[in-house]
């Protein structure tokens, strides 16, 4: 029985939200707006679960592994500082310590990790773009042509420019459509499987 109730909840919620799509009345609008809002609220209410997992793991690391103690401490210190500074509503205004920490600690690290991609895109290109097979050559060839558009090569550049435009607007468009139609069908089938309770791995079992 315990296992059945969640499946019924999925079934009812799923069908209600599919049906509301076909009903324009304001009762239906109400369900649509509130449903989305509620999922968000539950997601935030669930955060303590994650925070508990994080704190416990970091704490246990600090206790069990003396080598890691310093770093676990750094993490917990950062967490505590940010928590304390964010306790007041005013902390969300510009100029508060909370926002300053965001600006000068989170943003630089975030931007730098993002910029690592410039290096990784180069090493991935070097490693992967070898003409091993027809498929690999297609991948390599197109990437190569598209990258060439930024390199001044005199008259070749003009031809290349036109070729890149064509690749992007013709074969690129075709493949994206094929992919999206496939993903659409797969997604809808998965939705039906979930609503009907056929796909239920995510619920675990007792």
């Amino acid at each position: 029985m315990r296992r059945q109730i969640p499946l019924y909840i999925v079934l009812v919620c799923g069908i209600v939200f599919v049906i509301q799509f076909f009903i324009p009345s304001h009762e239906s609008e109400f369900i649509f707006e509130y449903g989305q809002d509620w999922v968000m609220v539950i997601g935030i209410l669930a955060l303590p679960l994650g925070i508990w997992s994080y704190l416990r793991k970091t704490w246990l690391t600090a206790v069990k592994k003396p080598k890691e103690r310093f770093f676990a401490g750094v993490s917990l210190f950062g967490f505590a500082i940010m928590m304390l500074t964010g306790l007041k509503r005013e902390s969300l205004m510009a100029g508060s310590l909370y926002m300053e920490l965001f600006e000068y600690v989170l943003i630089p690290i975030q931007a730098t990790i993002f910029s690592l991609l410039a290096f990784y895109i180069a090493s991935a290109a070097y490693r992967a773009f070898r003409a091993r097979s027809v498929i690999a050559t297609m991948l390599l060839g197109t990437a190569f042509i598209v990258m060439l558009r930024l390199i001044p090569l005199g008259p070749i550049s003009d031809v290349n420019q036109a070729l890149v435009g064509w690749i992007l607007s013709v074969p690129n468009m075709a493949a994206k459509r094929g992919l999206l139609i496939g993903i659409g069908l797969g997604a809808i089938a998965t939705c039906i499987k979930i609503i009907l309770g056929i796909e239920r791995t995510y619920l675990g079992r007792d």
Partner: peptide
Amino acid sequence: PFFIAATDYTLIGEELYAAS
């Protein structure tokens, strides 16, 4: 594209859904 270039195997779009 990045997964295809940098990992050994990639489930492309619908293949991921079909995997189950």
